[in-house]
Design a protein around this nucleic acid. Structure first.
Length: 234
DNA sequence: CACGCCACCTGTGAGC
DNA sequence: TGCTCACAGGTGGCGT
């Protein structure tokens, strides 16, 4: 991409796409601990893996301590065939993400809805935090068999996913530890978590209602932590 | 095909 | 203080 101009910055699921005027695309996945830093000050730090120098002196740095992220390059016209993108489910904030479509994609999925929503081929872009938060908002137990959800519940789930993602983006994401926005700012959506990483806390929906006997519970599903309120999610 | 488990790699906090 | 262990936002390969 040296010598070429970026013509568009896009995203598909969790994959960042930098489109260049030669038709090529740089693909970036931040994994768990990755970040992009614009005009990072000073010399490269530990775990800075790649730095782009921009005309005018600016820099764009890919930094990732845990190295679960990656950067790849797709030459002209190969992007749509990229295995990273070709099997992705619908964008949850697009018009393509409706209750009818999600319901359809849950057919044949007998695993728990929590695990199924983490499958990027079902819906693109959801991670562990936002699945937990969306299921709480929808009042759906993470243990529910995915294909058994009623149309009404799937409708609530779609609405919950959209609201969680919209609010999380507005808050700059969730900084548990590593996440930074490209300008270096922290994310703040963790302040608004209802259940994630809140094991033992009172359920926010039951606060002040005198029936807070249900604390937030942590279980493990497919090797991942799930947080939920057994009182409101069933 | 669907699903669970494990590995991948590094940092951090808890417990001793 | 320093050691060991468990665990962490994701994904892909493997066995079942």
């Amino acid at each position: 991409v040296a010598g070429h101009r970026v013509v568009a910055l896009e995203r598909r699921g969790k994959v960042l796409l930098w489109r260049f005027d030669n038709g090529g695309t740089v693909l970036i996945h931040l994994g768990m601990s990755g970040r992009i830093a614009i005009d990072a000050k000073g010399p490269p730090e530990r775990h800075d893996h790649l730095r782009f120098a921009i005309d005018g002196g600016g820099t764009v740095t890919f930094h990732d301590a845990r190295r679960f992220g990656f950067v790849d390059y797709a030459p002209l016209d190969t992007l749509s065939m990229d295995p990273l993108l070709s099997r992705l489910g619908p964008e949850p904030l697009s018009d393509d993400f409706t209750a009818a479509i999600l319901k359809n994609r849950l057919i044949g999925r007998r695993g728990p809805i929590k695990t199924v929503l983490l499958d990027q081929t079902v819906v693109a872009g959801l991670g562990n935090i936002y699945v937990c938060e969306a299921l709480f908002r929808a009042g759906i137990s993470p243990l529910c068999v995915a294909e058994s959800l009623s149309p009404h519940r799937v409708t609530r789930l779609v609405t919950a996913i959209q609201s969680v993602l919209t609010e999380a983006v507005a808050a700059g994401g969730s900084t548990l530890k590593d996440h930074r926005q490209p300008n270096g700012a922290l994310g703040y959506f963790q302040m608004q978590f209802s259940v994630y990483d809140r094991e033992g806390a009172a359920c926010p929906r039951q606060k002040g209602e005198g029936k807070s006997r249900h604390g937030i519970k942590r279980i493990v599903q497919a090797g991942r932590s799930t947080y939920y309120c057994p009182g409101c999610q069933n």
